[in-house]
Simulated assay, not measured.
Amino acid sequence: MSALKTKSSYAYIPGVMQYSAGVAAADGFAIERARFEEPVKLDEGFARIKAHLESIGRPLDAFCACELRSPAPFTEAGFRTFNEAYSSVLVDWGIMEGEDNPVARSNVCPEVAPPSEPSFHAFCYTVPAAGVGPTFVVAGSGEAREGQGTYRDNTVRFGETTPDAIAEKADYVLGEMERRMSFFGAGWADTTAAQLYTVHPIHAFLESEIVRRGAARHGLTWHYNRPPVKDLEYEMDCRRILTERVLLVG
């Protein structure tokens, strides 16, 4: 990945077409997070996000990150098709140009009671703020190197789910979180939340890798979800956000 790029109210780590690797608020702004009470289908979610931004007097390009929930892991071809539809809205909103997507994202698949179609779980946006310090969102990463070709050819211990394989995958993902945070001059000590997505046991390395590394300094939110592409097994994201809210649905 290259150096940080900027939008009007935040900087981002250039990533792949479907998302950036992370965002950080520009000086004079802060990132806030809103979570829907229940997942909201994609089209309705975009409409609700637009309405929320309008209600607080923020432009569409204040939208900087989101968390999605999908029915089941995609094939690589299916993931590309989904990403093309998703990113078309960002183009319409004037946020995305070409394949340069500044919006950070996580997209995971609940193993139990999944949504019937891709849906929004949460989203982030910038607001004017002074004196609050840095805020950032690191996008979700599984155990595959992004933008290097097929997932099959770039996944740590592809197809393996033994305890030592999951631990190796986790070590890679933790390192990727740290690498992405380093773009913002940040580390685990700066985070306010960390989220983990896997259906595999983590207890064997929870203390030695996650806790001792500092990734659970405020606890760890473990979602019993799978990453968005078949044969990926472990994903994380993290953030420093000082204002979070829940939006009622209905």
Score class of each variant (00 low, 15 high):
residue 25 A to T: 09
residue 17 M to P: 15
residue 25 A to H: 06
residue 15 G to R: 11
residue 20 S to Q: 06
residue 43 D to G: 01
residue 46 F to L: 02
residue 20 S to A: 13
residue 30 A to N: 07
residue 21 A to H: 11
residue 22 G to E: 11
residue 34 A to Q: 08
residue 31 I to A: 01
residue 23 V to N: 06
residue 10 Y to A: 07
residue 28 G to W: 12
residue 20 S to D: 03
residue 14 P to G: 10
residue 22 G to Q: 03
residue 45 G to N: 02
residue 37 E to L: 06
residue 46 F to S: 05
residue 31 I to N: 04
residue 39 P to T: 07
residue 44 E to D: 15
residue 25 A to Q: 11
residue 43 D to C: 00
residue 11 A to D: 11
residue 41 K to R: 14
residue 31 I to G: 03
residue 50 K to T: 12
residue 15 G to N: 10
residue 28 G to F: 07
residue 19 Y to D: 07
residue 21 A to D: 11
residue 34 A to S: 13
residue 38 E to C: 09
residue 26 A to P: 06
residue 39 P to N: 08
residue 11 A to C: 12
residue 12 Y to D: 02
residue 50 K to W: 00
residue 39 P to W: 08
residue 15 G to M: 10
residue 18 Q to I: 14
residue 47 A to I: 00
residue 16 V to G: 09
residue 23 V to K: 07
residue 13 I to W: 01
residue 25 A to Y: 09
residue 34 A to R: 13
residue 30 A to M: 13
residue 46 F to M: 01
residue 45 G to Q: 03
residue 43 D to I: 05
residue 29 F to M: 10
residue 13 I to Y: 04
residue 14 P to L: 11
residue 22 G to K: 08
residue 20 S to T: 06
residue 29 F to E: 04
residue 45 G to R: 02
residue 13 I to M: 06
residue 16 V to L: 13
residue 35 R to K: 14
residue 45 G to I: 04
residue 15 G to P: 05
residue 31 I to T: 04
residue 30 A to W: 06
residue 18 Q to L: 13
residue 38 E to N: 14
residue 41 K to M: 06
residue 23 V to P: 03
residue 40 V to T: 08
residue 29 F to T: 10
residue 30 A to V: 09
residue 38 E to G: 03
residue 44 E to C: 05
residue 46 F to A: 01
residue 17 M to S: 15
residue 31 I to H: 04
residue 31 I to E: 03
residue 22 G to L: 10
residue 47 A to M: 02
residue 18 Q to E: 15
residue 32 E to T: 02
residue 42 L to Q: 09
residue 33 R to W: 06
residue 41 K to C: 02
residue 31 I to P: 01
residue 47 A to P: 00
residue 37 E to G: 13
residue 48 R to C: 00
residue 12 Y to W: 13
residue 40 V to A: 06
residue 22 G to W: 03
residue 43 D to P: 00
residue 16 V to C: 11
residue 29 F to N: 14
residue 29 F to R: 03
residue 43 D to M: 03
residue 29 F to W: 10
residue 21 A to W: 06
residue 33 R to A: 12
residue 10 Y to K: 09
residue 10 Y to D: 12
residue 16 V to E: 14
